[in-house]
Amino acid sequence: MSQAHRPAVSRRNWASVAMLMLALFGVVLTSMLVGSGQLDAAHSLSYLLSPADNADAYVNMVMTELRLPRTLAGVIIGVALGVAGSLLQNVTRNPLAEPGLLGINAGAALGVVIGISFFHASSSYSMLIWAISGALVGNGAVMLAAQVGAASMTPLRLVLAGVAINAAFQGFTSLLLHDHIAAFDQYRYWILGSLSGITMEAVGQIAPAVLAALALAAALTRPLSALTLGDDSAKALGHNPNLIRALLSLSITLLSAAAVALAGPIVLLGLIAAYIARALAGHHLRNQLLYSAVAGAFLLLSTDILARVINRPFEAPVSAVVAFIGVPIIIRIVHSNRMFS
């Protein structure tokens, strides 16, 4: 049987995955070499090549406590948001869907504000817990609202429920911030969305959740592919559409909640990564997920590097840089997709 009959990732695909991986390695390296502070790339490189010869405490601190966790967090968050975006766009059949739609960002924001206002949360770990709990509640509320009174949850119901719940949560958040002036400062920093200040400890706390969610996503690839053929076809192929959607939203929620807990809301990244993945991989779902993972990590890290240097010695919030880059891409999606014409 010829190679063309095999459903495996083709050679051309492996070549482009390899290219992307190479590009990702490039930005990972750059991320370790470039910062907004005083440590220049040459010194950083010599540290990376032989850490033992560079006993300088400052260099050591910058490299292991600032740049390493930041780079790792960039990869993890990028992969998480990219895969979450791709899953969500396929399950809602909407090329502009992104995790914010599921109530995750609004829920996490409300969680953080409640934590700050009423429980004086300030450590990164407690912010993490508040953000994840809020994200889960927000997502639960969206799922519930989408499900009420319906035999099955259609993509449109999900979108409408998402819009409604997001608005309600944002309203609560504003209300709380209005009454708790002290919380506002801390919240403002969190809501900007940034990779700076992420500790190795926080990365370690979040990574298992991301890995579990990615494993779940991998197991759901085939059922999701059947679901894109419509509920009737998916059922006729032996799948359970509502179960698939529930498990998918669990995976998407874990991925996006982990990201928002670590870095605050970084909107549009998942959408852009999923778009790039679709452009590169076509409709083939497994390839799409693979590409969106790598593209997400690459995009986030490269925009984060940009965020470190465009306003030296200050940092720009990476979420703002992502948003600027995202706008032309969204306009292009709308332009090229017949769904919107």
Partner: peptide, 18 residues
């Protein structure tokens, strides 16, 4: 029946093996 945009025939038919 609905199919995602751009799906190729062979990939569609392979779903029958699920």
């Amino acid at each position: 029946p609905t199919a995602p945009e751009g799906i190729r025939v062979a990939d569609l038919v392979r779903h029958g093996r699920h």
